[in-house]
């Protein structure tokens, strides 16, 4: 009996010890390496002199070393930091890769100019844009959000209502479907020249174009969603005493929602494209305009800075849309995680 228990215990203990050991070297090792990568980034900023004239090199180097210290501290006290510790451990490989990337970037641009210079600005130049040109950048961000949000909401609402009407009523379908087929596939940007002289302001013209770019996919997907609802659902609802309004609001629309969200997602993508083009060509504000302006002054650091912000905004908008969908469509199995 005792021999059994002893051998059992040792057999059970051996793999567990191995697991914790590999865990140790694995998680701590990567965290340590990530910390070192950021330390290397910081030191590379401070050790060599810049080949150009940038004012934020010193603070960037110090900032990188502070980040390295945080990673180091977080790695070794992850077990006591709860959720934040776990999150850090999970992202340690990414922190390592990113630290290595910025180090390489720093060396290739500011220190040894392996990449041709005004076109590939170093990290400190981009940091400089965020610190010194912040008001203008923020103004552009707000202008873009305002324009995008207005156009998107108008387009999504009209697209949704049109889609439901076509899907529900044959009469509406008869009249709207040909128009949709004629106008819909046209890229919204093709309307740009006409829109800018027919609308009273470039802002209203751009809103119209963004709404158009959003509206088409939302209409088509909503329509196909409503049209594909199984008749069995309507039969069930009708025998339970449902009136036509109930059939539309409580059967057709909820059943079509998964399709609607695909349309909203596609509309978001195409409306971003229209937003940037409209801002570059007509509207004198927004991130698209900022990009155009930066290019005019050959301010490449500003362009990269604006691109990063734009990417974060677009990605954030899609995240928001997917979160909304996940909340509304909890009843679905296996939805795509963004």
């Amino acid at each position: 009996m005792s021999t059994y228990s002893v051998s059992d215990a040792s057999a059970a203990a051996a793999p567990r010890a191995a697991v914790t050991l590999s865990n140790l070297s694995g998680s701590y090792g990567v965290g340590l390496a990530a910390s070192l990568a950021w330390l290397a980034f910081g030191l590379s900023c401070l050790y060599w002199p810049d080949v150009g004239d940038w004012s934020r090199t010193g603070s960037l180097g110090i900032g990188a070393i502070v980040i390295a210290a945080f990673i180091l501290f977080g790695t070794f006290s992850a077990d006591y930091l709860g959720g934040a510790g776990g999150a850090l451990r999970k992202r340690a490989p990414w922190l390592l890769a990113f630290g290595a990337f910025v180090t390489l970037w720093e060396l290739a641009t500011a220190k040894f100019a392996w990449l041709p210079l005004p076109f590939f600005p170093p990290p400190q130049a981009i940091l400089e844009v965020y610190t010194d040109d912040l008001p203008k950048l923020l103004d552009s961000v707000f202008a873009s959000i305002k324009l995008q949000l207005g156009g998107y909401i108008i387009g999504a609402t009209i697209g949704f209502l049109t889609g439901v009407s076509i899907g529900w009523s044959q009469k509406v379908g008869y009249w709207v479907h040909p128009v949709l087929r004629f106008i819909g596939p046209l890229p919204a940007t093709a309307w740009l020249p006409i829109a800018f002289f027919t609308f009273p302001s470039s802002w209203s013209a751009s809103t119209f174009l963004i709404a158009l770019a959003t509206g088409f996919p939302v209409t088509v997907l909503t329509w196909s969603g409503v049209a594909s609802v199984s008749n069995a659902y309507y039969d069930v609802a009708r025998t339970l005493g449902a009136k036509p309004s109930f059939l539309v609001l409580k059967v057709a629309i909820p059943a079509a929602l998964p399709h609607v969200f695909v349309g909203l997602f596609m509309g978001l993508g195409s409306s971003f494209a229209v937003l940037v083009v409209a801002e570059m060509i007509g509207v004198k504000a927004g991130l698209g305009w900022y990009l155009q302006w930066a290019q005019g002054w050959a301010a490449y650091a500003n362009m990269y800075a604006a691109l990063i912000v734009m990417s974060l905004l677009c990605s954030g908008a899609i995240t928001l849309l997917f979160r909304t969908r996940d909340r509304l469509l909890v009843w679905q199995k296996g939805v795509v995680k963004w």
Binding site: A232, K243, Q332
Partner: peptide
């Protein structure tokens, strides 16, 4: 009518499915 397929509304919980008739 109760059909061969339960044809429950997948976006509604059990309670909401059962409540369908009264709601309608």
């Amino acid at each position: 009518v109760v059909f061969q397929d339960p044809t429950l509304f997948p976006w509604r919980s059990v309670w909401d499915n059962v409540a369908l008739g009264l709601e309608a």
